[in-house]
Computed example of a mutant assay.
Amino acid sequence: MKSPTKIGIVGTGFIAKGLIKAIQTQSDIIVSSILTRRKIEGMGSFPNKELLTNSVWEIIENSDLVVECTGDVIYGTKVIDKVFSASLPVITMNSELQVTTGSYFANRGFITEAEGDQPGCLAALNENILQMGFKPLVYGNLKGFLNLNPIKEDMEYWGKRNNLSLQMVTSFTDGTKVQIEQTLVANGLGADILQTGLLRPEAEDVDSGGIYLARQAKEHGSAISDYLVCPKGPAGVFITAEHEENQRDALRYFKLGDGPYFTLIQNFHLCHLEILKTIRRVVNGGGVLLNNTAEPAISVGAVAKTKINSGEKITHGIGSFQVRGEAVRIKENKGHLPIGLLNNAVITRPIEEGQFITFEDVEIPDSLALKAWIETETKSLNLHQVNK
């Protein structure tokens, strides 16, 4: 019998722990090593504790494939760089990393986002409907609630209630997470955005919201990546697409409506459980599901939620009470600071509420992630100039 594929896992948070438990029930894949920055002696209840290591070289030596799911841009970038030095394929569930440094890795080795979070689910749904002849106009995410500037007390309450970190629940609530996800979708699936920060219309239901966005995309002249604020919508994704005129009667019979725009919904995303599908896809030679591409057109800039004074420190951008992230076209925002790089930064001149932060406004520590972004932005801007 063929030996099981050895999976190295980077991270020990919610996603990593769930994936480890899921792999325990499989016969064709095994967890071989788990990389953590924590003190291992204090992780007594962690599953497969005997596989924990603080050494990236140990995970490389013991793995056929590495799954990176730390949610940390700076650290994850350093780890992937070392994994690539051993020519191992990498699967991420880390859209924050993908939109910041994923393009740096796209032509250096094999890197793909996994199914499970909304971007990977949209990529898989896209593959499915393209094979049926649909022509996508809207790659859509769904959000039940949005508060661009939530207060800390509310976020602490919801974090404890849902067993989420303060940083995570804040990035969900203020829209940073969905802006990042839809930026990855735009770059990976070759779509545009309608405007800075996305259009993000409110909708009573997914179908009507999808049709509204499809009309905007048709007028715009290209497929778009965006999301609906839809309190009654499912925790999933959707694509609104066109089809051939001669299929209208059949699609009406199939309960997709009269057209010309048809909304196809996946009403769930199951995070770590769906990573198993992407692992097998890669093992079986299925290729990249989704990544940020080598020359992305869209980024996620940092926008001040409030006035920030010179000398103030921002320990983290994603999930901060000082800034949030908004999707921007790179060619129109040269020098903007991607929110994924805004870690342990010091503001060097006053920033007004609503202002995008640029590299000229901050001092940030040197890192491989910073180098990776500078290379990515240069390539993207040069491509635009050539095309122009």
Rank of each mutant, 00 (worst) to 15 (best):
F145A: 07
F145R: 07
L146Y: 09
N147F: 00
N147K: 15
L148I: 13
I151M: 04
I151R: 04
I151D: 13
K152L: 12
E153T: 12
E153V: 10
D154V: 09
D154M: 08
D154E: 07
M155P: 12
M155G: 14
G159N: 05
G159M: 05
G159F: 05
K160A: 15
K160Y: 08
R161N: 06
R161T: 10
N162M: 09
L164P: 06
L164E: 03
S165T: 15
L166R: 11
Q167I: 06
V169I: 15
V169H: 03
V169L: 07
V169D: 01
T170W: 01
T170K: 10
T170S: 14
S171R: 12
S171E: 08
F172S: 13
F172I: 13
F172C: 13
T173I: 03
D174L: 05
D174P: 13
D174G: 12
T176S: 15
T176Y: 03
T176R: 04
K177I: 01
K177Q: 03
V178S: 12
V178G: 08
Q179C: 09
Q179W: 09
Q179P: 09
Q179T: 03
I180E: 02
I180Y: 01
I180K: 04
E181N: 08
T183C: 15
L184A: 07
L184R: 00
V185S: 05
A186R: 03
N187L: 01
N187I: 00
G188E: 04
G188F: 00
L189Y: 00
L189A: 05
G190C: 04
G190M: 04
A191V: 02
A191N: 09
A191R: 07
D192S: 13
I193A: 09
L194G: 09
L194M: 03
T196K: 14
G197Y: 02
G197D: 08
L199M: 06
R200G: 01
P201R: 04
A203W: 01
E204R: 15
D205R: 05
V206A: 14
V206K: 11
D207V: 14
S208K: 12
S208R: 10
G209P: 03
G210R: 08
I211H: 01
I211W: 00
Y212P: 05
Y212G: 06
L213R: 02
L213K: 01
L213D: 06
A214G: 07
A214R: 01
A214N: 02
A214T: 03
R215C: 03
R215F: 00
R215W: 00
Q216K: 13
Q216Y: 00
A217T: 02
K218S: 13
E219D: 11
H220W: 12
H220M: 05
H220E: 04
G221M: 07
G221I: 05
S222N: 10
S222A: 14
S222D: 11
A223N: 13
A223H: 07
S225V: 05
D226A: 06
Y227T: 09
Y227E: 07
Y227C: 14
Y227S: 15
L228M: 11
L228A: 08
C230G: 11
K232L: 15
G233V: 12
P234S: 15
P234R: 12
V237H: 07
F238G: 11
F238I: 11
F238L: 08
